[in-house]
């Protein structure tokens, strides 16, 4: 199963404090372990939210909001995509991660939806609708 492993932002990461050489080295080693175990699929670090934007939806309305955003604990600073056998394995790998931040920090693990998860919700009607859409695209 695929999981998204989310590194939560902290005051430091939001302030743009760059990681130390030691942390970069430890993180590099950890990433190598993930690759060599066949777990790592993708991963990226993110700039602070001051370099980000939000688009708020309300009915037909769209409002663009510039960063930085408050509620630091709810922001994210980076993510990985892993392929693991189960959630237990993901938890164990996360425990082995060096603390990604200077101070206390948190990493969240979320399961990625896969086609099978949609199960009966993906009705033949929905599939047919998609087929029609693809036909249109093909004729363009």
């Amino acid at each position: 199963m695929r999981v998204m492993v989310i590194v939560k932002a902290t005051k430091d990461s939001e302030a743009g404090v760059m990681p130390s050489t030691d942390l970069l080295e430890a993180m590099g080693k950890y990433n190598e372990q993930l690759v060599n175990a066949g777990v790592m699929m993708a991963g990226e670090g993110l700039h602070p939210s001051s370099a980000g934007k939000r688009v708020a939806f309300d009915g037909p309305g769209r409002t663009v909001i510039d960063g930085p955003f408050a509620e630091t604990r709810e922001l994210i600073a980076g993510f990985w995509l892993w392929e693991v056998k189960d959630m237990d394995e993901a938890v164990e790998w996360v425990k082995r991660c060096p603390n990604p931040m200077l101070g206390p920090s948190e990493i969240e693990i979320r399961r990625v939806f896969e086609a099978a998860d949609f199960g009966d919700a993906m009705t033949p009607e929905l599939t047919a609708q998609e087929d029609r859409m693809r036909d249109k695209l093909a004729k363009r």
């Binding site: 190598e32 690759v35 060599n36 175990a37 066949g38 790592m40 392929e83």
Partner: peptide, 14 residues
């Protein structure tokens, strides 16, 4: 398939 892909990824890492 997943098992073989994992093996393939391990080999590609090593």
């Amino acid at each position: 398939c997943a098992e073989a892909q994992r093996l393939g990824r391990i080999l590609a890492g090593l």
